[in-house]
C-alpha cells in the first residue's frame, strides 16, 4: 500500500539578514490512509511550517531547501504551482489555528464555501450549495441553509471553526492537516470537535495530521505521535508507547507538564528554558542547554535511532525502561 504522505529529510529555510532560519531541519515521516498522527512541540518548533511545506504555501523568501514530499507517490516539491493548487483544498486540506482569522470578514459563508467547491469541480452553484449544506450538517451546524447567508462575524469561534472544518471536508480529502484547530476554543467545544474529526477520519479513511503543543489533546486522539523540537523530530512512535515509556528527556518534560500526569498536589512541571532561536544553531543536541542528562557526548547531534520497531528517539541517553518520576525529569 502506498502511503498517503511520505516526507523525507524535509528542510525549510527562511533566509534573513542574520543568517538562515532552519524552521524545519531534516524531518522524515509517513502517514497511512485513515491514520491520525499527532505532531507535538513547543511554540516555534516548526510544526506549522512543516504543514505549510506540505501544501507548498511557504511565504517567500522562505523555501523548501531540501528533501522530498510524496503525496500518494507523487512528488510535491517539484510539482507545478497549478498541480499544487489542484491538490490543495481538494486532496490535501488544512485547518488553521485561529478560527477568528481564517474566514474572510467581508465575504458571506456561502461565497467562501461554494468557491472552494467550484475551484476543483465544474458544478453549478446550486449543486455546490447543496454540497455545502450537507457538509455543514455533518459538522453539526443547525439550519445550514440559513446560516450560509451569514457573514463570519455573526458566528461564535466554535461555529467558525466548524465552518472551516466543513470547508476542508468539502472534497473528502485524503489528508487533512489540522494546525491546532481547537486551541482557541473552550474545552467542551474542543472535545466535541476532536470527537467528530476522529469519527470522520475513521469513516472516510482520511489521514489526519493533528498539530498541537498540548500533548493531552492528542493523547486520546492520535494513533501515532511525533515530537518536534527546534526543527527536528526528537521522538516518534505509537501513542501508547511514547506516553507510557517516553525516551527523550524533552518528551518526558512535555508529559510532565500535562495536568493529571503527575501525582496530585505536586506543582505542574514546566520544562525550564526556551526553544533556541533557529538561526546559527551550534552543533550538537539542540536540547542540551535545557537537559538534565546532557554530557560531553551531547556535543554531537544524535541520530533518530529506533529503540524498538516504530519507536524512534534522537538522544544519546534515552531513558530505557526507567519509570517516569518527577525527580527523573529534573
Amino acid at each position: 500500500m502506498v502511503a498517503t504522505l511520505q516526507v523525507e529529510n524535509l528542510e525549510t529555510h527562511f533566509p534573513s539578514r542574520d543568517g538562515i532560519v532552519r524552521a524545519v531541519d531534516g524531518v522524515s515521516f509517513a502517514i497511512e490512509p485513515g491514520e491520525i498522527l499527532g505532531l507535538v512541540g513547543e511554540s516555534g518548533s516548526g510544526k506549522s511550517i512543516t504543514g505549510f511545506s506540505i501544501l507548498g504555501l511557504i511565504d517567500p523568501p522562505g523555501r523548501i531547501a531540501n528533501g522530498s514530499i510524496k503525496f500518494k507517490g507523487e512528488e510535491l516539491t517539484t510539482a507545478s504551482p497549478e498541480r499544487l493548487r489542484q491538490l490543495r483544498g481538494a486532496r490535501i486540506a488544512m485547518i488553521f489555528q485561529d478560527p477568528m482569522m481564517t474566514l474572510n470578514p467581508v465575504l458571506r459563508i456561502d461565497t467562501q464555501m461554494i468557491e472552494t467547491v467550484q475551484a476543483h469541480e465544474k458544478v453549478s452553484e446550486a449543486a455546490a450549495r447543496v454540497r455545502c449544506v450537507e457538509t455543514l450538517k455533518a459538522v453539526g451546524i443547525a439550519a445550514p441553509e440559513d446560516r450560509l447567508k451569514s457573514y463570519p462575524h455573526q458566528f461564535s469561534g466554535g461555529m467558525r471553526q466548524r465552518i472551516a472544518i466543513a470547508t476542508a471536508l468539502l472534497h473528502k480529502p485524503d489528508l487533512i492537516i489540522a494546525d491546532e484547530p481547537t486551541t482557541a476554543l473552550d474545552v467542551t467545544i474542543q472535545g466535541q470537535i476532536l470527537y467528530e474529526m476522529r469519527k470522520l477520519c475513521r469513516e472516510t479513511g482520511t489521514a489526519l495530521i493533528w498539530i498541537t503543543h498540548d500533548l493531552s489533546v492528542v493523547a486520546g486522539l492520535a494513533d501515532r505521535i511525533m515530537v518536534m523540537y527546534a526543527g527536528k523530530i526528537v521522538e516518534t512512535g505509537k501513542i501508547a508507547t511514547v506516553i507510557e515509556r517516553p525516551q527523550h528527556p524533552y518528551t518526558r518534560g512535555l508529559i510532565g507538564s500535562v495536568p493529571g500526569a503527575m501525582p496530585r498536589g505536586k506543582r505542574l512541571f514546566q520544562i525550564p528554558g526556551m526553544t533556541p532561536a533557529l538561526i546559527n544553531l551550534p552543533p550538537g543536541c539542540r536540547f542540551k542547554n535545557r537537559c538534565a542528562r546532557a554530557d560531553a557526548t551531547c556535543e554531537a547531534m544524535p541520530e533518530l535511532a529506533e529503540l524498538q520497531p516504530g519507536h524512534g528517539v534522537r538522544c544519546h541517553h534515552p531513558f530505557g525502561a526507567e519509570p517516569l518520576t518527577l525527580a527523573e525529569v529534573r
Binding site: 493548487r85 491538490l87 490543495r88 481538494a90 488544512m94 488553521f96 474566514l103 474572510n104 472552494t116 475551484a119
Partner: peptide, 24 residues
C-alpha cells in the same frame, strides 16, 4: 490568515487577489 486559507482551499491566484484581497 484568511488569505492563506483561501490559498489552502486551492483557489486560483486570480481569485485570491481579485476577490479575497481586493474586497478587503
Amino acid at each position: 490568515d484568511f488569505v492563506k486559507f483561501a490559498r489552502a482551499k486551492g483557489l486560483s491566484e486570480k481569485r485570491v487577489i481579485g476577490v479575497h484581497i481586493l474586497k478587503n
